[in-house]
Design a protein around this nucleic acid. Structure first.
Lengths: 143, 143
DNA sequence: GTGGAGCTTCCCATCATGGGAAGGTCAAGG
DNA sequence: CCTTGACCTTCCCATGATGGGAAGCTCCAC
């Protein structure tokens, strides 16, 4: 199987497969005489594992940890659970931040007529003349 | 006022102030004889506007739009409202995606004993042997 | 006059991904 | 046999927003 086939079989772009190899997330693949990478079912399986972990929002670093745990027969499932629960915490913190932003924005948008008059509470608030407060919704956009 | 003072008055790092100038988000500042940038209250005000928009999760591009609308006396507040509501939609989509991830992860973590036995439903699911489905929680991590 | 704090520009790193160029290779069809 | 097009290879660059740090200048206080 060439990289293109492995790509469509796993849902990971060829570009990313090469990148994952480059950063050591997956082992360098064997090559044919024409220097093409060769993949088998095993590799597709690994790539789909990675794809799913990424879909769940794990970083590549976390994915690497999970991948090693997956391939380690003697691993402790508590280690995996810890990675997962830490990640849940991260996600929930980011969700809460974003919900704060939405709440503030909705409040402002509700107060904003949206008509042709230049008065706009959204801009007034951003300019700091309003009373909604200075950055109360969260300091960091991304955790 | 030098850049350091403007930075602490606005909450925007000196590095970022220079960057905003470089990408044209703010006008190039006048310089003193020693080539130091000089800032006044007006500029601090603008920087705080930017800071607040960033805190609300607006991208720099959106912030630029808002900034122009803010400085345009003849703007229509409907334009501002549109930027805000679009942004609310973006945020809500991302929140929903993340909530899907959290739900799936919590389900998996609940099923995972977290003890020393190597059986782990989280890894089983990531490996694609489980029944939870293939990436149902959202294709893209970031919108 | 000296030390340290602050300013300048310039380059590099992050994280994950995509775009694209330049060149090799293979298969099919004229 | 030769062309065409699809595929592969490596290499460099870009994103978005931010930080780190080096090298060199200036300014102020002591």
């Amino acid at each position: 199987m060439n990289i293109g086939e492995a790509s469509s079989a796993s849902g990971v772009s060829a570009k990313m497969i090469r990148y994952y190899e480059e950063i050591g997330l997956i082992r360098p693949m064997g090559r044919t005489g024409n220097n093409y990478r060769v993949y088998g079912q095993e590799e597709v399986h690994i790539l789909r594992f990675i794809k799913r972990a990424r879909n769940l929002g794990f970083s590549l670093e976390e994915t690497e940890t999970l991948l090693k745990l997956w391939q380690d027969k003697s691993r402790e499932s508590s280690a995996v659970k810890e990675v997962a629960t830490t990640h849940i915490g991260d996600l929930e913190r980011r969700i809460a931040e974003m919900q704060g932003m939405v709440k503030t924005l909705k409040h402002l948008a509700n107060c904003c007529g949206g008509d042709n008059r230049p008065n706009c509470p959204i801009l007034d608030d951003l300019a700091g003349d309003g009373a909604v407060g200075d950055g109360v919704v969260g300091k960091k956009i991304r955790a």
